[in-house]
């Protein structure tokens, strides 16, 4: 092989080496930049003190039959009603075809006497009345939203008025017969 050809081959090898070095350096730098960006993104995720309040435990033993309490979970009002037998039966007797947002009562409760819902009207976000005695419960004996006249039944389902969906049920677990953890 002539000298010129050897040199040419040598240069080509050098170039391939340089390309590989360049490509790998750029790749490693890019990975580094992504790893460096992650803390800035993750820092905006909920912090540990916020997550500590992400679930609330509640003792239900003080709530008598027919009574309701309002608790707070993740900044939202939680309606818990200790339903009477009459209220439970009324909830069960409703035909699905009559419901704007069809859901059986069984699908909305874990233990029939205890109805746990997020107390925010699914229309435009007001807090429906019906928690305290003396407050209007609406035509279906559940809850009544004064803002635009939505009526909810004893299972928290929308029966009349502009709200599109039933009152939402949060994730909760019974830790014992008398305590629940929401979230």
């Amino acid at each position: 092989m002539s000298d010129a050809a050897t040199t040419h081959q040598g240069h080509a090898d050098d170039e391939t080496k340089r390309d590989f070095l360049l490509v790998s350096t750029v790749t490693v730098s890019a990975v580094g930049a992504a790893l460096a960006a992650w803390p800035f993104i993750d820092t905006m995720n909920p912090s540990k003190d916020v997550l500590a309040l992400a679930s609330t435990e509640l003792n239900l033993s003080a709530i008598e039959e027919g009574q309701a309490i309002t608790a707070v979970w993740r900044g939202k009002p939680i309606y818990i009603r200790h339903r009477t037998a009459a209220e439970i039966d009324a909830a069960k007797d409703v035909k699905l075809a009559d419901l704007k947002d069809p859901e059986t009562d069984a699908d909305r409760v874990q233990k029939a006497p205890w109805l746990v819902m997020i107390g925010i009207c699914t229309h435009l976000g007001c807090l429906p009345q019906g928690q305290r005695s003396g407050e209007p419960k609406g035509e279906f004996n559940g809850w009544f939203c004064p803002c635009h006249g939505s009526h909810y039944d004893t299972s928290g389902r929308i029966r009349k008025g502009p709200a599109p969906k039933n009152l939402a049920v949060p994730p909760y677990t019974f830790l014992s017969d008398t305590t629940i953890r929401i979230g």
Binding site: P39, F40, D42, T43, N45, S47, K48, D49, V50
Partner: peptide, 10 residues
């Protein structure tokens, strides 16, 4: 320093 994700690093 304690509760914010990567707060100590920032």
């Amino acid at each position: 320093m304690r509760d914010v994700n990567y707060g100590w690093l920032l």
